[in-house]
């Protein structure tokens, strides 16, 4: 845990003016990425982000400085999003993902003109749609790894998943996106 984190936590606990607002500003992007990627509904995600920071404020005294503040807040956001999905009875992972991934790996062809594909805006839009069709957990893991550039160990601290499980999810979802990219190119004019 960094010295800056420690100072910020002490300032919030001492009710220093503006300290909590600074804490929220520093970590709101990560919180948004976790929750919005899992929940997808913008209004729900905004409410859950607010709920996350209210919980952070409420339980900050329980933070033991054992992990980075970012990971601790990320963990709270992840738990909040997970509970929301459970309440809505939305599955966070696809049950037959492993078999599907192996099939995709075996059936993948090489006849793909990437230059032509890159010229198309339609393809980029299609890829974003493909990302949206991934199960909530995989969408979130991809975002943390690629957009937030968190290490697999940091993601493990946030989600509580084993590093091997995270790697497996990343592998399968990237493979699936690659396959969908090729399918899209085949369907485009």
């Amino acid at each position: 845990m960094s010295q800056t984190d420690r100072q910020l936590v002490h300032a919030v606990l001492a009710n220093a003016p503006g300290a909590f607002e600074r804490l929220v500003r520093e970590h709101q992007a990560l919180c948004w990425h976790i929750i919005y990627r899992m929940v997808r509904h913008p209004e729900d995600a905004r409410e859950l982000c607010q709920d996350t920071f209210l919980r952070v404020h409420q339980h900050l005294r329980q933070y033991r400085h054992e992990s980075a503040l970012k990971s601790w807040i990320g963990r709270v956001a992840y738990t909040v999003a997970l509970r929301h999905l459970e309440r809505k009875r939305i599955a966070v992972v696809s049950p037959h993902e492993e078999e599907e991934a192996l099939d995709r790996l075996e059936n993948m062809g090489d006849g793909f003109d990437l230059e032509a594909a890159q010229a198309s805006n339609e393809l980029a839009a299609y890829l974003h749609k493909a990302i949206d069709t991934l199960p909530p957990l995989q969408r979130m893991l991809l975002t943390l790894y690629h957009l937030d550039e968190l290490s697999i160990d940091e993601i493990a601290q946030i989600t509580g998943l084993a590093t091997g499980t995270i790697k497996s999810h990343l592998f399968r979802s990237r493979l699936r996106l690659r396959q969908q990219l090729e399918t899209a190119y085949g369907e485009l004019p």
């Binding site: 990425h33 990437l114 594909a117 974003h128 990302i131 957009l147 690659r178």
Partner: peptide, 15 residues
């Protein structure tokens, strides 16, 4: 092909 996927994954969110 994978780089195209990674590029899309690194783009900021729509909201």
């Amino acid at each position: 092909r994978y780089r195209t996927v990674m590029r899309a994954l690194r783009q900021p969110m729509d909201d």
